[in-house]
Design a protein around this nucleic acid. Structure first.
Lengths: 154, 154
DNA sequence: ATACAATAGTTGCGAATGCAATCACATGCT
DNA sequence: AGCATGTGATTGCATTCGCAACTATTGTAT
């Protein structure tokens, strides 16, 4: 979104929104140009690859990617149709399901990574000094901890 | 999205994504709880209110809010249905259309502002020191200028 | 003037989204 | 045991999204 605040003072938030949107758009474009699936797919694949046994419960995965639960179900549906992920019913808790990364899924992530990495590197990391990066990391961590701490909207 | 990079070093980007998503979600929730329309509506209303004559060409508005052109058309459709915006055909260039803010639209923005402002203040600004904010502003400006400079994906 | 390309905006369409309701199973209470 | 309550995941539905194709108008070249 644009520079939408009332006072110029608080404009860092507006800048934040704009940067997010412009960068995500560019990254998606690059992936699409390379004939690769979207950013959201990468996130799921990578989340699974990091997990022990390359598997995660749906709810754990939903926490990792920031997506509504129902939408994660359908994203995994698509990934499953495309054979990048497989579902396994949980033995201990028969309500639960695991999403499991397949070999194809692992290979896809490996193909996506260079494109994604290059985009972030060029568009984000290369533009920010180590010191700025450090400061930003601290600030954003603080923001996130605060926001996560108070789950309710009040 | 989650902490999705390959190496912890580049994790500021991952943090950036996560913060964006968590904060936007919280802001939307607060607006919804207050019985107010979404964040995207605010952005359009505010964009128009700032503009001379409270009016903007569709294309200018599309640059302001970061949204695909087709989607802006439909967002303005909805705003028009709800009487917050009015469309006017351009006289000089008869292809063009202006979106014009109505009195109701102005009033709506005024009602949304306190909720939005409070959320940003509390979730973002209050968590970041002046110095951090300053650094972040500089870094993000650099990122944005760079990304905007090179429109193409290569 | 006539034709061809460029631009402003809209529309068709299929894909992605979130909310609320639902299904299946598990857990707690009596 | 028997029943209410809770939890994990999915599904129905209406909304929103972006791409590509389209209409209408303007600009440019010949």
């Amino acid at each position: 979104m644009g520079k939408s605040l009332e006072k110029p003072k608080g404009s860092v938030w507006a800048l934040f929104l704009t940067v997010h949107s412009v960068l995500v758009e560019q990254i998606e474009t690059r992936l699409a140009v390379a004939g690769l699936p979207s950013f959201g797919w990468y996130d799921v694949l990578w989340g699974l690859e990091r997990a022990p046994g390359q598997r995660l419960r749906m709810s754990e995965l939903a926490d990792h990617v920031v997506l509504s639960r129902s939408n994660l179900t359908r994203l995994v549906d698509r990934l499953e149709d495309a054979k990048f992920v497989r579902r396994e019913r949980s033995a201990e808790d028969r309500r639960g399901a695991y999403a499991v990364l397949t070999a194809e899924g692992k290979a896809l992530r490996k193909r996506m990574w260079p494109v994604y990495q290059a985009a972030i590197q060029e568009l984000f990391e290369a533009q920010v000094s180590d010191e700025q990066s450090q400061t930003m990391g601290e600030a954003l961590t603080q923001v996130l901890n605060n926001a996560r701490g108070s789950t309710d909207g009040a």
